[in-house]
């Protein structure tokens, strides 16, 4: 636990000076605040931008930041040095995961500002689940990638699918059918009525299968490659 806290502290200092990562964390919360206040159109669903950007936030920020942090540390040998200083790989991953999750949750709190008070807890709960799955996916990519370049090329397609499919699903039925298999689409459905209860079994099954797949791939990636 102490070592994971050291990683969190280190990462906090580093993020404040890392514009690429910092922008991932603040882009969607900022855009949500701006758009929700600037655009009001007749017939537009309530909190449309909050819900839309929340799903994009889940699909982008934790995924890209975790993959980028791990791959950069691998590329620049800092991870090796940490491991040699007796930080265990799981302590490191836990530190990075908890850090990214916490920062994203802070972003989610900002995004929740305009929501009705009674929905805020449920909103944060849904976001928390989404961030967690996304962090595992990002960690898998970080483990597989040998450097930042390869991490980016792996992150891009995954991020596009997770972030944009739910948005495109609003306009196209075929895409909607495909998007159903991804946790971001199911979480979007939950956000639409601010509930995780009362959905069809499909929501729970897809979420569960996505969690299991993310954990399995993470476990296999970690077993096969560790943090080398």
């Amino acid at each position: 636990m102490k070592n994971s806290m050291i990683i969190i502290k280190k990462q906090l200092k580093d993020t404040l000076k890392n514009k690429t990562i910092l922008i991932q964390f603040i882009l969607f919360p900022m855009m949500t605040l701006i758009m929700e206040n600037a655009i009001h159109m007749e017939g537009m669903p309530e909190h449309f931008f909050t819900k839309l950007f929340s799903i994009m936030y889940i699909g982008m920020a934790p995924l890209t930041s975790v993959a980028s942090i791990i791959s950069e540390e691998k590329e620049k040998n800092t991870l090796r040095v940490l491991l040699m200083a007796n930080i265990k790989p799981l302590q490191y991953l836990m530190g990075i995961g908890v850090y990214v999750w916490s920062i994203c949750m802070m972003g989610a709190v900002v995004m929740a500002i305009g929501l009705p008070k009674q929905d805020i807890l449920m909103y944060l709960f849904i976001m928390a689940i989404g961030f967690m799955i996304s962090i595992f996916v990002g960690a898998c990519i970080g483990i597989f990638a040998t450097n930042q370049m390869s991490a980016t090329s792996l992150v891009m397609p995954v991020m596009m699918v997770l972030s944009f499919l739910p948005m495109l699903a609003m306009f196209n039925e075929k895409i909607e059918k495909m998007a159903r298999f991804f946790f971001t689409q199911q979480l979007k459905l939950c956000l639409n009525d601010m509930s995780i209860m009362g959905h069809s079994n499909e929501t729970y099954i897809v979420l569960l299968v996505n969690v299991i797949i993310a954990l399995l791939v993470f476990g296999l990636a970690f077993k096969k490659k560790g943090l080398e």
């Binding site: 050291i6 620049k76 800092t78 090796r80």
Partner: peptide, 25 residues
């Protein structure tokens, strides 16, 4: 151990780099 390449956090100051290891040790 000092490896042949990199191994320092480029964005952090010298002192912050060492603070990480001071915490670890």
């Amino acid at each position: 151990i000092m490896m042949d390449q990199f191994g320092v956090y480029e964005r952090l100051s010298c002192s912050d780099n060492l603070k990480i290891y001071a915490d670890i040790y």
